[in-house]
Amino acid sequence: MKKSLVFLTGFMGSGKSTIGPLLAKQLGYGFLDVDELIESVEGKSIVDIFRERGEIYFRNIERKILIETVLSLSKFVVSLGGGTVTFADNLYLVKGSGILIYLKASPEVLLQRIKYKTDRPLLLDPAGNVLPENLLLERILSLLKIREPFYLQADFLVSTDDKDVDETVNEILKKLENKIA
Rank of each mutant, 00 (worst) to 15 (best):
S97G: 07
K16E: 05
V34M: 06
V77W: 10
F156W: 08
I19N: 10
S40Q: 15
L37N: 06
S4P: 03
L176W: 11
V85S: 02
L5H: 11
V85E: 01
A154C: 01
N178H: 15
Q153G: 08
R139W: 00
N90D: 10
N134A: 13
Q153H: 14
L103F: 08
V47Y: 08
N60G: 01
N170E: 15
K44Q: 15
S159Q: 05
G128A: 03
L152T: 11
L135W: 13
P21I: 06
S17C: 03
A127D: 15
V47C: 08
L73P: 05
D164K: 13
F76Y: 15
F7D: 04
N129Y: 11
D125A: 06
T84P: 04
L144A: 02
G54V: 01
G15L: 11
I101W: 03
A181Y: 15
K75H: 13
A181L: 14
L157E: 13
A127H: 14
K115Y: 10
I114T: 09
V165M: 10
V109I: 08
V109L: 02
I61P: 06
D161K: 10
G10W: 02
V6Q: 04
F76W: 04
G10F: 03
T84C: 04
L135Q: 15
T69G: 01
K95F: 02
N90C: 02
L103T: 05
D89Q: 13
S159W: 07
L176Y: 11
K75V: 00
L152A: 12
D166L: 12
P21L: 04
N178S: 14
E108D: 12
G96D: 11
V109C: 04
G20H: 12
V109E: 14
F76A: 04
S79R: 03
L136T: 10
I65F: 04
I114P: 13
S17I: 03
G128L: 02
F150C: 05
P149H: 13
D161R: 11
L124D: 11
E42W: 07
L103Y: 10
R53F: 09
R63A: 05
R53Q: 12
D164T: 02
P126Q: 14
S79H: 07
G28Y: 07
L111I: 05
L66Q: 00
R120H: 07
P107T: 08
I67C: 01
S142W: 09
F150Q: 06
D162F: 14
Q26R: 15
E108T: 02
L143N: 10
T118V: 01
E167R: 14
V77Y: 06
K64A: 03
K64N: 00
T84E: 08
P107L: 07
I46V: 12
D125P: 12
Y151N: 04
L143P: 06
V34Y: 03
E167T: 12
V78Y: 10
P121F: 09
P121M: 08
A127L: 15
F11S: 07
L22M: 14
F58P: 03
F58Y: 10
F76R: 10
I114V: 13
I180T: 12
L141S: 13
D155F: 07
Y151H: 06
L136P: 10
F11Y: 14
N90S: 09
D162G: 14
L122Y: 11
T69P: 05
K175F: 06
L123K: 07
S72Q: 09
T69A: 05
T84K: 03
P149T: 05
L93E: 12
T9K: 03
I67T: 12
L5M: 11
G82E: 00
